[in-house]
């Protein structure tokens, strides 16, 4: 789980072009959207593509993403439970 969380942080920074943010700055339970990392709706869609591409999880409703992407910890738990690759 710890490895997955680290992997997710790396991917979030890379995929969402968070230029000035380092892995250490993203806490496991920090909110990703809103005030947290300042991610927006397009970032959420980008994370949905990442779930599909890297973990074989297909979301059809963007609203589902809202709950899953609350924090790195919640994302990691969801991926562990639902991943197909």
């Amino acid at each position: 789980m710890e490895a997955l969380k680290l992997e997710l942080k790396e991917k979030i920074i890379e995929q969402l072009n968070l230029e000035d943010i380092s892995i250490e700055e993203i806490g496991d339970n920090d909110p990703l959207f809103g005030d947290g990392l300042g991610l927006d709706s397009i970032d959420a869609l980008e994370l949905i593509v990442m779930l599909d591409k890297d973990y074989g999880i297909k979301l059809t409703d963007p609203k589902e993403g809202k709950k899953i992407f609350e924090s790195v910890a919640i994302m990691a738990a969801y991926i562990t439970e639902n991943r197909t690759k």
Partner: peptide
């Protein structure tokens, strides 16, 4: 082979 269009690019 690797079909993953990116919303962040499309916009």
């Amino acid at each position: 082979e690797s079909y993953y269009p990116s919303p962040a690019i499309f916009v």
